[in-house]
């Protein structure tokens, strides 16, 4: 295998949290991690420091394909489908003010 260089990007992961039983998983943000196991651990530490969740999903950002606002791709610059442009912080989990 090839030795990774320090210039190589640590993969980006999108994080989805189920705040409470009965609710669906909601996108809360993203993070960097070398693999899925660490991504899950990091997500727990970063996005549920205040017990905001009962379940976490992590998805490689590269696995997500995003649509354009009007499906007219010509309107968007060539970098438009880059994964790092995936929106973060769609939803702020409830109860973050309570430690």
């Amino acid at each position: 295998m090839s030795e990774p260089t320090s210039r190589e990007q640590t993969p980006l992961w999108e994080v989805f949290v189920r705040a409470r039983r009965g609710l669906s998983h909601t996108h809360v943000g993203s993070l960097h991690a070398p693999d899925a196991e660490l991504a899950l651990r990091n997500a727990r530490d970063l996005y549920t420091r205040r017990q905001e969740g009962v379940s976490i999903w992590v998805v490689p950002a590269g696995a997500i394909t995003a649509s354009s606002p009007d499906e007219k791709d010509a309107f968007f610059d060539p970098a438009a489908d880059k994964v790092y442009r995936h929106p973060t912080f769609y939803e702020v989990p409830d109860g973050v003010a309570h430690l």
Binding site: L46, Y84, T88
Partner: peptide
């Protein structure tokens, strides 16, 4: 944590955290 939230927000603009 706040630093990481903000880096993630900046990354949506087409630049990497690195």
């Amino acid at each position: 944590g706040h630093g990481l939230y903000l880096y993630a927000a900046a990354e949506t603009l087409g630049i990497s955290r690195d």
